[in-house]
Write a protein that binds this DNA or RNA. Structure first.
Lengths: 179, 179
DNA sequence: TTAGAATATTTCGGATACGAAGCAGTGAGG
DNA sequence: CCTCACTGCTTCGTATCCGAAATATTCTAA
């Protein structure tokens, strides 16, 4: 296994985090990891549908509102419009939403789920619900987690973080040492 | 304001989520939002350093272990090696880590923080800690959130989610209706 | 009414993410 | 010693994300 002093023992993130161990970093890091874990999870669940987690959330929000403009969807999801714009085009290409200009304000694009989109959403919702139930997380725990994360998000969004002051740069900008 | 029946009221995500309101979706969505909120937050905090949250986490893990191979770092962070590879090159270019082949196994690349990297990390850690304290989240809440998220992640990673069954596709693949 | 501000969307460049495929170095069996 | 499977890293294509800048439409005020 070549465990010389030159390099270190392989480590799983559990042990890794024990060494990091600051609450602030732990919290961020858990969110960071959980986000990607969910991403992989949903990618598998939605594999055959053309949906991804991002598109599923968009579709769900649109269905809940029976259609919305792109900027309203952006506010609704907390994601920039320039992110949603190409996704909406792809979803329209798949036939899960329609994408039309608002005749009352030609600047706006209104997105609405199609009948086909609602069918897919219904199927997806059932699977999502069932999958979540299979995770074995109690409703209490889930509510608690949601409540804390929600407060955390609000705090993070309000805050204007202090900037890190950069120490003096090293003597010269390094070249990448080995290819 | 053009609030015709054609389109809907603008909505913030708070109201949006009230309509969605399933615990499973709430949980995923909170994680999704919190992840991006942290991303924006750290981007501002690290703006002048050349670091990002991803690079900061990498640097922190490398410092905790006094260096690691790329694949060990990958296991440590739960991120694929092909994601870390280009990031490590950039960090080496900035001079925060060094990147050398393991002489005992020429396949491996060992990453180690430089003195400069450790200085930046120290400055970043202080700011991160202070910023988190300023959020006003109690240590108890933070621990609780971390514990639940950790269990949730473990469950998600273990699970093999059921697949969504696709309903029949619409009659023809739509063209994108308006540019 | 008409110049200029405000708003909605798109485009562009940059930063992470992933899976799949390819290449180079190691090591195990014949 | 020589395949040949395995491991570690890189590259490629795709999918989100962001901020900044460009474009088009609407509104506002002079």
């Amino acid at each position: 296994m070549s465990c010389s002093a030159f390099h270190c023992q392989p480590m799983r993130y559990i042990e890794c985090m024990k060494k990091i161990s600051d609450l602030d970093n732990m919290a961020c890091f858990q969110v960071y990891q959980l986000h990607h874990a969910f991403g992989r999870y949903y990618q598998a669940a939605f594999a055959d549908t053309g949906l991804t987690y991002a598109k599923y959330v968009m579709l769900k929000a649109l269905a809940a509102q029976k259609g919305m403009s792109l900027s309203d969807l952006s506010a609704c999801l907390g994601v920039e419009p320039n992110t949603l714009s190409p996704l909406a085009k792809k979803m329209a290409g798949f036939g899960v939403i329609e994408r039309v200009r608002d005749p009352e304000d030609e600047r706006r694009i209104v997105l609405r789920p199609t009948t086909y989109g609602l069918e897919i959403l219904k199927a997806a919702d059932q699977v999502v619900m069932q999958n979540f139930a299979d995770l074995g997380i109690s409703a209490d725990d889930a509510s608690q987690a949601i409540a804390i994360m929600s407060r955390l998000r609000t705090a993070v969004e309000k805050a204007s973080p202090a900037r890190v002051i950069v120490p003096d740069a090293p003597l010269a900008a390094q070249d990448v040492p080995c290819d």
